[in-house]
C-alpha cells in the first residue's frame, strides 16, 4: 500500500467518524467541528487517491488550498450566526434538535 493510499483510507475513516458525529450531536459548535474534520477527510481522499493513481499532482493540491479557505470562511460565518442565535435565545442547538 502506498502512503498516498493509506492517507486516503485515513481520510475515508475520518469522514465516516465525523459524519456519525455530525448526525449524533445537536450542539452547533460540535457539528462545526465535525464538518471541519469531514472536510479535511475529503481533502485527504482527494489528494491521496489521485496521487496513488498518478504520483504527485499539483491540481488536487490547488483544489485543497481553495477548499481550506472555503472551510474557514464557512466556519467563521457559522460561528457569527451561532453567536447571535445564542445571544438571542441562550440555546446551543436548533429548536427542533433541542431536548432539554
Amino acid at each position: 500500500m502506498s502512503p498516498a493510499l493509506w492517507y486516503a483510507l485515513v481520510g475515508a475513516l475520518l469522514v465516516a467518524v465525523a459524519f456519525a458525529a455530525f448526525a449524533a450531536h445537536t450542539h452547533v459548535v460540535r457539528r462545526l467541528l465535525a464538518f471541519n474534520v469531514m472536510g479535511t477527510g475529503s481533502f485527504l481522499i482527494l489528494v491521496g487517491l489521485a496521487q496513488h493513481e498518478r504520483g504527485p499532482d499539483p491540481v488536487p493540491q490547488a483544489l485543497v488550498l481553495t477548499g481550506i479557505v472555503v472551510a474557514v470562511a464557512s466556519t467563521a460565518l457559522a460561528l457569527v450566526v451561532f453567536r447571535r442565535w445564542f445571544a438571542a435565545t441562550g440555546r446551543v442547538a436548533l429548536p427542533e434538535d433541542d431536548t432539554p
Binding site: 502512503p3 498516498a4 481533502f43 489528494v47 491521496g48 496521487q51 493540491q61 485543497v64 488550498l65 481550506i68
Partner: peptide, 9 residues
C-alpha cells in the same frame, strides 16, 4: 500534507 509532498497545503 508534508508526507503527501504538498508543502504549500
Amino acid at each position: 500534507w508534508v508526507r503527501l509532498e504538498a508543502p504549500d497545503v
